[in-house]
Design a protein around this nucleic acid. Structure first.
Lengths: 85, 85
DNA sequence: TGAGTTTATTACCTATAGTTCATAAGGTCT
DNA sequence: AGACCTTATGAACTATAGGTAATAAACTCA
């Protein structure tokens, strides 16, 4: 499970769902636009406090931001091999 | 929401539920006993990758490790003030 | 009491999370 | 074509995640 890419996808989806730009999310949550960009592309390994601050600005929860999405589930299935009970 | 303390409590509960010592969890997950001790007492701010590695050794998920427990819910209620619909 | 096990704590070190400033690249719209 | 908005990327910096080694403090239990 690539946690960086998972969080990146979840953050991008949540941000777009609220119609925010990276700049708006960044300023509202106290980060730089560069960081949001790197984060969404799966280049960052955020801490739980960072997750919490992002979640607040996105009106969601830290749990939602690390919850596996379709992509993560497909990746996990491939990693475990098909037919792993 | 104090994420450090929340994760600390969740890790400690999960570790004790499996009957592991801090040393055993640490070695199994690739950390030091000191780190597990600091983590459980709420002095650390783990990254999502650290959460994932801990979860694997504890046979649980990163989501479970940051899911609010009774204590966190009580704290949150106090912070928002009673009677916040 | 003491030995043995587990957890807490101190001091110091390295790697990296997240920063700023700047610019490039990609869209959209007239 | 341009101006404009948004996202991506580079270099260099500071703060902190997580490391090692050692020791102190707690807690069993014979």
């Amino acid at each position: 499970m690539d946690m960086r890419r998972l969080v990146g996808r979840n953050v991008r989806k949540a941000r777009q769902a609220k119609g925010l730009t990276q700049e708006q999310l960044a300023e509202g949550a106290g980060f730089s636009q560069k960081y949001v960009s790197d984060l969404e592309r799966g280049f960052e390994n955020p801490t739980v406090i960072t997750l919490f601050e992002l979640a607040q600005r996105l009106d969601t929860t830290p749990v939602a931001l690390i919850t596996p999405d379709e992509e993560a589930i497909r990746e996990a299935a491939k990693a475990n091999g098909p037919r792993t009970k």
